[in-house]
């Protein structure tokens, strides 16, 4: 049964964590980390997404069926992104005569 749900305390803690992470990602953008800037920004975004998904959207407490739907969504998204990028970036590997 999905009767267990987070308490007010849990929601508040997650909210405070989200605010700190939002401030952190903005602050870090002003520090020169080179290539790492994008990686860190996306890692923080992923962490924030997990917090919202697990606690605000109750995935932490959800049943397997709903988790599978979420994973399927990510799987399709990964397929779309990876196949498109694989196409775009492998085009220059083989030199074709221009028409």
């Amino acid at each position: 049964m999905s009767e267990k749900k987070p308490s007010v305390g849990t929601y508040t803690m997650v909210f405070v964590a989200l605010l700190i992470l939002a401030a952190l990602t903005t602050g870090i953008a002003y520090i020169n980390l080179g290539e790492l800037n994008t990686v860190v920004a996306l890692a923080i975004a992923a962490l924030k997404m997990c917090l919202v998904g697990l606690f605000f959207m109750h995935l932490w407490y959800s049943r397997g069926l709903i988790r599978i739907v979420v994973l399927a969504g990510f799987f399709w998204l990964a397929l779309m992104v990876s196949f498109v990028l694989a196409d775009v970036f492998s085009r220059s590997w083989i030199k074709l005569p221009s028409p």
Partner: peptide, 26 residues
């Protein structure tokens, strides 16, 4: 309704770094 609202929030969580913070602001 809350699930929908949180989803829209998550989209913004990605849009903010992708659009505003590309390659740092230093």
């Amino acid at each position: 309704s809350g699930l929908y609202w949180h989803f829209v929030d998550i989209i913004w969580i990605y849009l903010f770094p992708l659009l505003y913070l590309i390659g740092g602001r230093y």
